[in-house]
Simulated assay, not measured.
Amino acid sequence: MALPHHGYRATKPRARAAPPSGDPLLFEDTTGGGQGAGGVNTLFTDPMANAAMMYGSSLANQGKDMVNKEISRFMSVNKLKYFFAVDTKYVMKKLMLLMFPYTHQDWEVRYHRDTPLTPRHDVNAPDLYIPTMAFITYILLAGMALGIQKRFSPEVLGLCASTALVWVVIEVLVMLLSLYLLTVHTDLSTFDLVAYSGYKYVGMIFTVLCGLLFGSDGYYVALAWSSCSLMFFIVRSLKMKILSSLSADSMGAGASAKPRFRLYITVASAAFQPIIIYWLTAHLVR
């Protein structure tokens, strides 16, 4: 019986293409025929590229030297390191000296070959570590005090920090101007004045803590104690720097400045401390 041929089409086996030699490429190679490594090697062996790299390195070194030179014009890095050469023993002794200075006898800064000893070797040497840490602690304590009283805000805390910093700057500038106008020859540097002015933050921390713990009565007692201690410390410390220069200036240009003016500078600097402490802490304790 003959089968119908409608809809039937004979199929022939298709010839399969021969597989390409090597691994098949899934993506088109756009790297330039594997010349990447060769390009890198060419870059490093190209004299123009090497010259450009050397020129760029030279410019970077020159820029670094210029930055260091500009910083050295306004601030001696080695001098700044001297004021941070402290250890734990010195910090404890200096804090005790700031709060209980009345029993201390020897206030003279010691020298070795005309160079003052570092703070870790001389408790009378001024430092910037304690003022810096005390300033940061004061800001944190102010934020806590304002938070306890439900008055905290970033603006108020920023105003408190900037005010405390500005007062120190004003105090140092006034001191420098006074020494210049009275032609007082002393070895006090700007860093020394910043250190002595920054020690007030220790008393401010003590005052605020007592105010938070014991109320207004504790605040005023702590204010009186820290103010008297700081005034005594400032007078005895600056006395060795300012008043002792009278003999050195007796035959020089500083002879025209009367001794009582130098005494006024020392006393005024000390008497100004309680005013600043009260101004910066009274609003934190209510």
Rank of each mutant, 00 (worst) to 15 (best):
S58G: 10
M75I: 04
G63C: 06
M48G: 13
K64A: 07
I71E: 00
G7A: 10
Y55E: 04
P13H: 04
G36S: 13
E70L: 05
A10F: 10
G56K: 08
G63F: 05
R9P: 02
N61W: 11
N41P: 01
T31K: 02
S72K: 04
P24N: 14
S72R: 07
V77W: 01
P19I: 05
G56V: 08
L26M: 08
N50Y: 09
F84D: 01
D65Q: 11
S58H: 10
N68T: 06
S57W: 10
A85C: 03
K89I: 03
L80I: 13
G33K: 15
M48V: 14
F27W: 11
T88G: 14
K69E: 02
K64H: 07
I71F: 05
P4H: 15
T45N: 13
D87C: 01
P4C: 15
A17R: 15
S58C: 06
A51C: 01
G7E: 08
G32I: 03
D65N: 13
K64D: 02
T45S: 15
T88F: 14
Y90T: 00
K69I: 01
K64N: 09
A51D: 04
M75F: 08
T42M: 11
A85G: 02
P19H: 05
T88C: 09
A10K: 11
T11W: 00
P19L: 03
D65K: 15
G38R: 09
F84I: 02
M75R: 07
F44N: 08
D29H: 15
K89Y: 09
G63Q: 13
F84P: 00
P20D: 13
M66I: 12
A37E: 09
S76Y: 03
N50S: 12
T30G: 06
A52G: 08
H6M: 04
N78Q: 14
L80W: 12
Q35S: 12
N61G: 07
R9C: 04
E70F: 03
A37P: 04
R73E: 01
D23G: 09
P47I: 01
